[in-house]
């Protein structure tokens, strides 16, 4: 491993930028992501910074069961995120559609049909601690030695 790569690994492990996108959820998962910001869970002590800008993000959190308006919007949004990047599905909705995946519905789950999903957190909604621990355990695996393994 080159010196530059080890430097990048060290920096990346303490600086994870997160964007979240709601593609048709009931808000339950969104407020649990928001709760991660609160001083009790204090997501920023791990170097995770939540701001809703895809162009700066490393991790994209996806909630919701994919409503029709997103069909032409989620893929461009995913393309705007610079490499290395990872998408995490939060809650049952992006995985299976949860209670909304019934006859007569408008949603079109799962989200993995549209963009690659690296990890899934089931739960309706999952607890904030589960969200934080997933991001923390996933990010090193994806981002470690990114430049060297890419070749």
């Amino acid at each position: 491993m080159s010196l530059l790569q080890s430097l990048k690994n060290a920096v990346r492990s303490r600086s994870i930028h997160v964007a979240y996108v709601n593609v048709g959820s009931c808000n339950g998962c969104d407020i649990e992501i928001l709760a991660c910001l609160s001083p009790r869970y204090d997501i920023e002590q791990y170097g995770i910074y939540v701001h809703n800008n895809p162009r700066e993000a490393d991790v994209l959190l996806i909630t919701g069961a994919f409503s029709p308006q997103w069909e032409d919007k989620l893929k461009p949004l995913w393309d705007k995120i610079p490499h290395p990047k990872v998408a995490v599905a939060i809650g049952n909705c992006p995985i299976s559609g949860c209670v909304f995946n019934r006859p007569e519905t408008l949603v079109d789950p799962p989200v993995s049909k549209h963009i690659p999903i690296a990890a899934e957190i089931p739960g309706c909604p999952p607890r904030p601690t589960e969200i934080i621990s997933t991001i923390l355990s996933l990010a090193p695996i994806i981002f470690k030695d990114y430049e060297e393994t890419k070749k």
Binding site: G24, S67, Q69, E104
Partner: peptide, 13 residues
């Protein structure tokens, strides 16, 4: 709107 339209009323019926 339309970004989170799930059609809950239609499912409920």
């Amino acid at each position: 709107l339309g970004y989170v339209k799930k059609g809950i009323e239609r499912i409920m019926r």
